[in-house]
Simulated scan of single mutants.
Amino acid sequence: MSKLFEILQKIRTKPGMYLGKASVSDLFHFLVGFKTALRELGIEATKEEMDFYREFQPWVQKKYQVSTSNSWAKIIMLHCANEQEGFNTFYKLLSEFQNRQKNLKGDLFDKQSSAENKPNLEEVIGR
């Protein structure tokens, strides 16, 4: 498992220990600092982490149908009554985001499998 997702699970269970309180805005700032610290230490991000860093923001924008330069945390807060609700919403969205990867991989695998199972021209003619 990646360092990013390990720390996110720890924060989810004990937000007060890492953030002071369950807050999507504080979580966002924590993650920016976490990413910066890893980069400064020369620790490379995994493929899953890079996908999160590059794709989560546009995915949230698409989900909420907004085009903005605001962070994903601010977009989430536009739809939540308070920081605690935003924090909980982030984890729901994160789960959806990660599952969309699995669904995309599954769809790709299904397409490859069905393409591999299709007979080629020689097989058709030979029948």
Results as ranks from 00 to 15, higher is better:
Met1Ile: 07
Ser2Ala: 07
Lys3His: 10
Lys3Cys: 00
Phe5Asn: 03
Phe5Ile: 05
Glu6Trp: 02
Gln9Ser: 15
Ile11Leu: 04
Ile11Glu: 02
Thr13Trp: 06
Lys14Phe: 11
Tyr18Val: 02
Tyr18Asp: 06
Tyr18Lys: 00
Tyr18His: 10
Leu19Gly: 05
Leu19Phe: 01
Gly20Arg: 01
Gly20Tyr: 01
Ala22Asn: 02
Ser23Met: 03
Val24Ser: 05
Leu27Lys: 03
Leu27Asp: 07
Leu27Glu: 06
Leu27Ala: 06
Leu27Gln: 04
Leu27Thr: 04
Phe28Pro: 01
Leu31Met: 15
Leu31Val: 09
Val32Asp: 08
Phe34Leu: 05
Lys35Val: 05
Thr36Gln: 14
Arg39Ile: 12
Glu40Asp: 14
Glu40Asn: 14
Leu41Gly: 10
Leu41Lys: 15
Gly42Phe: 04
Gly42Tyr: 04
Gly42Ala: 05
Gly42Lys: 02
Ile43Asp: 12
Ile43Ala: 10
Ile43Gln: 12
Glu44Tyr: 08
Ala45Glu: 14
Thr46Trp: 02
Lys47Phe: 11
Glu48His: 07
Glu48Lys: 13
Met50His: 09
Met50Arg: 12
Asp51His: 14
Phe52Pro: 08
Phe52Lys: 01
Phe52Ser: 05
Tyr53Asp: 08
Tyr53Asn: 03
Glu55Pro: 00
Phe56Pro: 08
Phe56Gly: 06
Phe56Val: 04
Gln57Trp: 10
Gln57Val: 07
Gln57Gly: 09
Pro58Asp: 09
Pro58Ser: 02
Pro58His: 06
Val60Gly: 01
Val60Cys: 04
Val60Ser: 06
Val60Trp: 06
Lys62His: 10
Lys63Glu: 11
Val66Ser: 01
Val66Asp: 05
Val66Met: 08
Val66Gly: 02
Thr68Phe: 08
Thr68Arg: 05
Ser69His: 08
Asn70Val: 06
Asn70Cys: 06
Ser71Cys: 06
Ser71Glu: 03
Trp72Met: 02
Trp72Leu: 03
Lys74Tyr: 07
Ile75Val: 15
Ile76Glu: 09
Ile76Val: 11
Met77Ala: 01
Met77Pro: 01
Met77Glu: 10
Leu78Gln: 14
Leu78Ser: 14
His79Asn: 15
His79Val: 00
Ala81Asn: 12
Asn82Ser: 09
Glu83Ile: 04
Glu83Arg: 03
Gly86Tyr: 07
Phe87Trp: 03
Thr89Pro: 00
Thr89Gln: 14
Tyr91Gln: 03
Tyr91Pro: 01
Lys92Cys: 07
Leu93Arg: 05
Leu94Arg: 08
Ser95Phe: 12
Glu96Ile: 08
Glu96Gln: 13
Glu96Tyr: 12
Gln98Glu: 15
Asn99Gln: 15
Arg100Asn: 13
Leu104Val: 11
Gly106Asn: 15
Leu108Pro: 00
Leu108Tyr: 12
Phe109Tyr: 13
Asp110Pro: 00
Lys111Ala: 14
Gln112His: 10
Ser114Trp: 08
Ser114Glu: 15
Ala115His: 10
Ala115Tyr: 12
Ala115Cys: 01
Glu116Cys: 06
Glu116Arg: 13
Glu116Lys: 15
Glu116Phe: 11
Pro119Gln: 13
Pro119Trp: 11
Asn120Met: 04
Asn120Pro: 00
Glu122Arg: 12
Glu122Val: 11
Glu122Phe: 13
Glu123Ile: 04
Val124Tyr: 10
Gly126Trp: 10
Gly126Leu: 14
Arg127Lys: 14
Arg127Tyr: 12
Arg127Trp: 08
Arg127Phe: 11
